Structure formats: structure tokens, C-alpha cells
Simulated assay, not measured.
Amino acid sequence: MKLALVGIGKIALDQHVPAISASPDWELAATVSRHGTVEGVPAYTRIEEMLSSHPEIEVVSLCLPPVPRFLAARAALEAGRHVMLEKPPGATLAEVHALEAMAAARGLTLFATWHSRMAHAVAAAKSWLADRKVHSGRIIWREDVRKWHPGQEWVFEPGGMGVFDPGINALSILTEILPAPVHLTAAELEFPANRQAPIAARLSFTGSIEADFDWRQEGPQTWDIEIDTDAGAMALRLGGNVLEIGGTKAEGAESIMEEYPALYARMAGLVRQGASDVDLAPMVHVADAFLLGRRTAVEDFEF
């Protein structure tokens, strides 16, 4: 199937383009970006021009930042194309609900992707927890914004989500593996005095689940989820790629490179089935954090 990639930035070049190139399901037939291009692929700066020039393209994958994503997704759906959304699926819950209704009315596929759910050990962790009682849990998700979003000012603008851009990856895993849903009860958000989105957050959920997100960690990065159950301790390390049971490694790999190929395989299956997958549970927790969060001002942040 022919596919167009919209938003040729770091995540697109690091993950999407290699995944598409290696896939037996997809051919990258066009790109849309203000500045970025992919060698050998027709490039456009406006999605409307791309859509009118390529009626043969069935699917549009959107990698641009959340705030402008809705208009691009709407244009693609109105042109009769299936749509794949990089996480988070939008800047607001309401706009994603609108896209879901639009896709359903047109019989098109809409896929709100959560790449961290495709990490090596997530399915095994979900299976292990399925018949166990969860007593408590801890998420520690700390990374360096300068490494993963160098100079990308939009991440600290309204709609950019700040530290929840990576933190939502942890929440996507949590909502996938827990045998029963939880909801947020309290949040503390640290905003740099010169920014519009938080650089750190501490969250409390029902079920004695706590989360610690921070975008200021230099050196080794930390992506851990630890769950205490009636059958002992379970942990997911390395962003869901390594599973530990009782402190001993049970399975996993040290690579995150297979997450995006799995997403594109899933998208191919959804298109063939005429189905959609729009799970907004991780984003609900983020929205609740902004609603309930107690705001604290911290020192200015500059890239």
C-alpha cells in the first residue's frame, strides 16, 4: 500500500522512515513537511497539494506536533484516506473524538498509536498481571529533553505537553498492562518560569500507583515501571523492553527499534480489516493531570 508521511522531523527520520522502508506492507510515496524531505520521495509543503496530486495514496501517517495535527488529519479523512497518528494522538481529547467520528462515518481506519505498548516485554507483563492482585506501583520516567527534542520549542508551548510527551509513553504501558483501570487523584506539576508546559510531574493514582516524570535527567535515562502484587514484584525496565519477576530478568531485549515496525504492521492489519483503534486512556490521565495538578514554578529552562 502507498503511504504519505507528514512531518519529517527527528521522530520521522529516526523511526518512521526506517520502519516503512523495512516493511513488506508499505511504500513511502510522498512526504509533507515545511523543511524536511526523504531522498528519492516526492516532497510537498502542503498536505492539500499532496492529497490532490496522489489519489493512489491510501494512508497518511502524521508525525507533526500535536497542535497542527488535527487539521492535517481532517484533510486526509475528508480526502478518503486512512490515518495513522503519532502519539499523543492530538492536542485535545475532543479533537481526537471528532476525528474518530469522522473516520467512522466515512468507513476509514483511524489508528491512535502508542509505540511503547509495542515494546518487547509489555505483552508478557500484561499476561503475568492478568490473574494477580495489584497492591501498589511506581513509575520512574526520567530523560533528557535536550537529547530527545533538541531545540524543539513546541514541546513547551500550549499543546506540546511538556514532560508528558515522554510520560504518556509510561501511561500507555500502565493502561495496557493493569488488570483493572485506575484514575488520577492528585498531581504536582513543575513549570519553568519561562515556559507554558511542565518539565516535571508527580502523579498519584487509585490503587496506590505513583509516577515520577522528569525531563532534566542527564546521563543514563530511566524508564521503569514497578508493580507489587499478591504474587510478588514485577518490573518493566528500559521502556517496557525488559521484564523482571521477583528481581530476576524474565525476558526482553535491549533494543527499542522494533516498536515502530510493529505499529506499521498493526496499521496494515487495521486497513485490511476495515477497523480502527483509538484508545485514549493514556491521554485521559494527562488531561486529568492538567486539571488536578498543583502548579509550582521552577527555574527557567533554555535549550
Rank of each mutant, 00 (worst) to 15 (best):
K2W: 03
K2S: 09
A4Q: 08
A12P: 08
I20Y: 04
A22E: 11
S23M: 07
A30D: 07
S33R: 07
G36C: 11
E39W: 01
A43C: 05
L51D: 03
S53G: 09
H54Y: 02
I57Y: 09
I57D: 02
V59H: 04
V60E: 06
S61H: 12
P66H: 06
P66E: 03
F70P: 04
H82I: 01
M84E: 08
M84A: 12
E86R: 01
G90S: 07
T92E: 10
L93R: 14
V96F: 01
V96H: 02
A98T: 11
A98K: 07
L99F: 05
L99P: 05
E100D: 15
A105H: 07
A105I: 00
T109Q: 03
L110R: 04
F111N: 01
H115Y: 11
R117E: 07
V122G: 06
A124S: 12
S127H: 11
R132K: 15
R132Y: 07
K133Q: 13
V134E: 10
H135F: 13
G137A: 09
R138E: 12
I139G: 02
I139S: 03
I140N: 10
I140Y: 00
I140M: 00
W141H: 06
V145H: 06
R146E: 15
P150T: 11
F156V: 05
G162F: 09
V163E: 02
V163F: 00
D165H: 15
D165L: 13
G167R: 09
G167N: 07
S172A: 15
I173Y: 10
E176L: 00
I177E: 07
L178T: 02
P179N: 03
A186K: 14
P192S: 06
P192F: 04
P192R: 04
A193S: 15
N194I: 05
R195H: 10
A197C: 10
A200R: 14
R202A: 13
F205A: 09
F205S: 09
T206A: 05
E210V: 14
E210F: 12
E218M: 05
T229Q: 08
D230M: 02
D230G: 11
A231I: 00
G232M: 10
G240C: 09
N241I: 04
E244V: 04
E244K: 11
G246N: 01
G247L: 03
A250S: 13
S255I: 01
S255R: 14
Y260E: 03
L263M: 12
L263I: 14
A265T: 11
R266I: 00
R266N: 03
G269W: 00
V271K: 05
V271A: 05
M283I: 09
H285R: 01
F290K: 07
L291R: 15
L291V: 08
R294Q: 14
R295A: 04
T296R: 14
T296C: 01
A297M: 12
E299I: 01
F303T: 07
